[in-house]
Amino acid sequence: MSSYLLPSAMVWDAFELQERAYFPDGTEVRPSAEPPVLPKAPAGLRLRGVEKAFGDNRVLRGIDLDVPAGQFVAIVGKSGCGKSTLLRLLVGLDEPTGGEIDFIDDGGDRVAPDARIVFQEPRLLPWFSVADNVAVGLGDGVPKAYARREAELVLEEVQLSEKAKEWPAKLSGGQRQRVALARALVSRPGLLALDEPLGALDALTRISMQQLLTRVWRELGFTAVLVTHDVTEAVHLADRVIVLDEGEIKLDLAVPQAHPRRHGDPELALLEGQLLAAILGES
């Protein structure tokens, strides 16, 4: 029990520090008024010698990685370094050709895989309302009233309650991505995989989305694995940044700064430089 009471206590402190920000479409990013539904326990990861090959092309070459439950990990690297492949393995979209991937609780015991993924494109069903799109995240055969209530709760979380009945076509790009996030979170997964979720957004929306992501992660206490090509985004969001190069882990860097982080923080800029050097292969 204490495993998930702890993060939610931290959440309330974080609210006091939360900066106010606005999405370009005018929606205010604010701390939510009520505590959310109690999150499920986050799931950690244990990867041992994970390999993935497509024919002769060895995309991942023996990845060993431990992600404690509740951690926010970012994976960066050049295009084709295998970062998206790794993410697809984590959420079970592909099978590894070697090694083992285990979901673990904070005691280190194996638990059932419990992951959701958000892609760069929102992939919403255009013929479903925003609320119905979110309810897709609960899976088949869920009672309607329950699905509606859960969808409302999580839409509140991403600050889109007032759009619940709209068609996705009526939303902006940032709003659509928030609906996709809500859909991924509605079942309270232990692990959230993010595949360049902010890549298609404009710079201002991206900053607001980063703040939202940080807040939601702290409130719900899931484990987050973010794949991105944006090093600034990685050091801004993650506790730990991993540089992947030709299918191997090249650098594993902790980002100890407290949340929420300010853009333009010089310490973060130093880490950023270190990461960029590793990615570009400079000494």
Partner: peptide
């Protein structure tokens, strides 16, 4: 295809995938 993959990820049954994704998409 991305929507169909999304449906699979969210554990839709074949019937559900047809009803929620394929049929409305083909309509």
């Amino acid at each position: 295809r991305d929507l169909v993959e999304m449906g699979r990820i969210y554990g839709m049954s074949s019937w559900s995938l047809f009803r929620k994704v394929i049929f409305p998409g083909a309509l």
